[in-house]
Amino acid sequence: MCGQCPRRVRGQPWTRPSPGRSGASSEIVATIFRGTASKPSVSATSFQIELPDTVLAGARRGDLRALETIYRAFERPAYTLALRMLGDAEHARETVHDAMLRLFERVAQFRGDAPFWGWLRQIVVNEALMRIRRERGVVLESLPEDDSIAGNAAEPWASADASNIERALARLPALTRSVLWLFHVEEYTHQEIAELTGKSISFSKTQVMRGNQRLRHLLEAETSRNHEEITPWLSPATAV
């Protein structure tokens, strides 16, 4: 479960947030969401929402209702992407705010020759990377090239739950976490990541490899700690 957003009640279906939270054109939003099927997990397709032409036309005219419809449609994928990259709810909110504002100021210029969602996602990624640079004093912290953690233990992925994975992710350096997320979830290529971060392709590849290893290691620690908490009577310290 996401540790930084309202929790879903186990066993109940995951749904998108109420589209008409403050009077947006709920029918249009409902149509958009029908087209992207509610799903409980994240993938590159979460962003791939096609907007009706009428919404884009309204947004180009500066119609606030159309802009709100766009915001409602992309609120979750944009916030999720920002949160996963930044690891901080407040920064993620500010990033979404700034990215949306930027998008709305430019939407009149959007000619529609490329997917709208791709443009918005690019703006969110850029805003998040800018914020990471600002927070880290321009130098982006990442895992060093020689950071190598040997691990022959069984893969912890299957046994870890979402909260374990989120905690482990939060402990990675911001840039490594961002590269991992962009590569694995948003399906950016190493070339694209290199361009976004201003680094080399081999940097991106190394960060993905080291990030995987580090994440696995952190996850092993997380799951073994959980195991000890759940079954303290098996721990030698408490054994009589």
């Binding site: 957003c5 309202p6 947030p17 409980p40 994975i165």
Partner: peptide, 16 residues
């Protein structure tokens, strides 16, 4: 697969 299986998040307040 593990990262993609993480749930989507929603901001805790309305940003609109």
């Amino acid at each position: 697969a593990a990262l993609r299986a993480l749930p989507e998040c929603t901001p805790d307040r309305d940003l609109w």
